[in-house]
Simulated scan of single mutants.
Amino acid sequence: MILNNGDVLTLSLDKSSGSGFQSKNEYLFGKIDMQLKLVPGNSAGTVTAYYLSSKGSTWDEIDFMFLGNLSKDPYILHTNVFSQGKDDWATMGGLVKTDWTQAPFTASYRNFNANACVWSNGASSCKSDAPSSTNGAWFSQELDSTSQQRLQWVRKNYMIYNYCTDDNRFPQGLPPEYRMS
């Protein structure tokens, strides 16, 4: 449902249907922002997602998924990066089941902003392969040492699964995109 003169989009899920949307443009690279309001209350078994995906039978994808929860439990943010159309994601073993009596589950999205190069008919809207210095300062940003320490703390205290270290999943060795120097 589109609300507030097109400023807010809500998506609903019930036992027989779900919903989604996609941008009108395809992007080569850029900075993309979106505000999400997650499903309130008991939303166990639902996923509110925001993701970037290429097209084709072997696609690449970057996912930001918020796993539903029991009332008053924290939401779990699941991130995923995969290539060539292969990586199932961790589901905590399906231990918590969806309570469909709480349906419909509704999430809201607003303030989509893409500071990005549009890809259309095999060409980019940007004049070069690098973002302009005025609009693309984010392209060269890096975490400072304090931010790196905070990220490590979050990983240590909140990361529940990292498939880049899942030897059972990749007995033949990690794919090239997961190997870090």
Results as ranks from 00 to 15, higher is better:
64 F>Q: 00
51 Y>W: 15
179 R>I: 15
106 T>H: 02
56 G>N: 12
80 N>Q: 00
85 G>V: 03
170 F>R: 05
69 N>S: 13
27 Y>V: 02
83 S>W: 04
116 A>P: 00
155 R>K: 12
180 M>E: 08
36 L>F: 02
178 Y>A: 14
20 G>A: 09
56 G>F: 14
22 Q>G: 00
39 V>P: 13
157 N>R: 09
61 E>R: 13
19 S>N: 14
108 S>Y: 14
90 A>K: 09
69 N>E: 01
37 K>A: 07
15 K>F: 07
136 G>D: 08
115 N>K: 10
58 T>D: 13
63 D>I: 01
85 G>C: 05
162 N>W: 08
75 Y>K: 02
170 F>W: 11
105 F>C: 10
180 M>P: 04
40 P>H: 09
96 V>T: 13
105 F>P: 06
141 Q>C: 11
99 D>I: 02
106 T>N: 03
24 K>D: 13
101 T>C: 07
117 C>D: 15
61 E>D: 09
149 Q>E: 12
1 M>I: 10
94 G>K: 03
119 W>D: 11
181 S>R: 01
87 D>K: 07
43 S>Y: 04
39 V>D: 10
91 T>A: 01
170 F>M: 02
24 K>C: 06
149 Q>V: 09
155 R>F: 09
23 S>Q: 01
121 N>Q: 14
157 N>I: 09
98 T>S: 03
159 M>Q: 15
97 K>T: 05
92 M>I: 03
106 T>M: 00
43 S>A: 08
174 L>G: 05
137 A>N: 01
11 L>C: 12
158 Y>M: 09
104 P>E: 04
131 P>M: 10
94 G>W: 00
47 V>P: 05
1 M>Y: 04
11 L>I: 13
165 T>E: 08
105 F>V: 07
38 L>W: 11
153 W>V: 06
164 C>M: 11
54 S>C: 14
2 I>Y: 08
159 M>D: 06
2 I>G: 11
142 E>C: 10
102 Q>N: 07
101 T>M: 11
46 T>V: 04
20 G>S: 14
149 Q>M: 10
121 N>F: 06
24 K>A: 12
55 K>I: 08
33 D>T: 12
17 S>Q: 15
23 S>C: 13
154 V>M: 13
104 P>T: 05
60 D>M: 01
178 Y>L: 10
55 K>P: 00
111 N>F: 01
88 D>I: 01
11 L>Q: 13
160 I>G: 14
29 F>D: 13
104 P>C: 04
108 S>T: 10
137 A>T: 03
11 L>W: 06
105 F>R: 05
131 P>L: 02
13 L>M: 15
162 N>H: 06
86 K>D: 00
